[in-house]
Amino acid sequence: MPRGLIVARGGFIALVGWVMGVALQLQQPVLWALSSYRALLLAGALALAGMVLTRRWLAAMCTALLAGVLIGAGLTGLRAVHFAADALNPALQGQDIEVTGRIASLPQASAQGERFDFEVESARRGGGTVTLPPRLQLGWYGESGTGSPGLRAGERWRFTVRLRSPHGNFNPQGFDRERWLWEKGIQATGYVRNGPRDPVPERLGATWWHPLDSLRQSVSERIGERVASDPRSAGVLAALVVGDQSAIVGLGKRVVR
């Protein structure tokens, strides 16, 4: 059989194998060592080269399937290991940590305050530098319902936070919050410390980072201003236009993004 046809059909079979490899790796209860996934990738590359070189149809297709499985499992595991390496140090859970970074999402408002994603630039505790996950999900809750100072996407801030590793209910067929946070690249959640005895949060200025979220926030605010006489309709419009579901009020059940 012509080599070009073998390569073309072998590529499709390799894609099928890649999906199988990803599915198999996702069944692992515990991640392997980084070297194991590198070995899988190397073996997959060698199998792929063997598929290209062979002229036997059955051998080529079997080799392509094997290559896809090895590469799919190796890449998925490699990504998971690298992501897990940035997990929150258990010794830092529940501790006061000073962080500097940027508001990395459209802040989600509630009656108690605001929730937002935060990209860490630096972190300190007890006068020394500490390492945190690069992306956090934080809440800023005011005393007596005062809420946060009106955060904007892209702003740089310095404040003190308390963090913990992501947790969620483990209910069959239910919402998997830990996986949702994992997909967003978030490995720690927490809140801003803004009590009378805490260091005063410091706004360091606006930036050009996260322009899309900044634009979404501006459009949501404009909608609220134009439809100020009907907050319920303004919230629905903001949710439909820019996905700002926190703007929905008076619907009986709050929608959580």
Rank of each mutant, 00 (worst) to 15 (best):
G154A: 09
V236M: 04
P201Y: 09
L204E: 13
R3S: 09
A33R: 09
H167D: 03
M20I: 12
L75C: 14
S220I: 03
G147L: 01
V255F: 09
N171D: 06
D244W: 01
G10A: 06
V81A: 12
T131V: 15
L240Q: 15
G168P: 13
G205F: 14
L34R: 07
G150F: 11
W18Y: 14
R102S: 07
G168C: 09
P166T: 10
A238P: 07
E178I: 15
P29C: 09
L78N: 12
V30I: 10
R197K: 14
A64S: 13
G68R: 00
A123C: 12
R124G: 04
R125Y: 06
S35Y: 10
R254A: 05
S148F: 12
E121T: 14
R203F: 15
E114H: 05
G10M: 06
P199Y: 08
L40N: 02
L41K: 02
V255P: 02
A239N: 12
T100F: 03
R9E: 00
M61V: 12
L240P: 03
P166H: 07
D117N: 14
Q93D: 02
W57D: 05
D96K: 12
D117S: 11
V255Q: 05
N194G: 11
G142Y: 14
G101Q: 06
L24K: 00
G10F: 05
A33F: 07
P199H: 11
R203G: 09
V130W: 07
A234Q: 08
S229R: 15
Y37G: 08
L42S: 05
R222S: 08
E202Y: 12
R56P: 06
A39Q: 04
S220N: 10
Q27R: 13
P201S: 11
G11V: 15
G128A: 08
R135P: 02
R257Q: 03
A153C: 03
V227W: 11
G252K: 05
V227S: 02
R222G: 13
G154L: 09
Q217G: 13
L88Y: 04
S122A: 15
C62G: 09
A59W: 09
P2K: 04
G17T: 08
A234I: 14
A14F: 01
V249Y: 03
G224Y: 09
P149T: 10
V227Q: 03
R3H: 11
D96R: 11
Q95P: 14
R164N: 04
C62S: 15
D117K: 14
P107S: 00
Q173T: 10
L65N: 03
L40Y: 09
Q95H: 15
Q108R: 10
T76A: 07
T131G: 02
S246R: 06
W208F: 10
I13D: 01
G72H: 00
P149Y: 05
G113A: 05
E114R: 05
L88W: 08
L58D: 09
D117V: 11
V7Q: 04
R135C: 01
V256W: 12
F118E: 06
H167V: 14
R232M: 11
D117L: 15
R9T: 14
S233Q: 15
R179S: 02
Q93H: 07
R158S: 06
R102W: 14
N194Y: 05
R125G: 08
L65G: 04
L181A: 04
A109P: 01
L53C: 03
S122D: 13
L106I: 00
R254Q: 02
A14Y: 00
A87D: 01
A47P: 02
F170V: 13
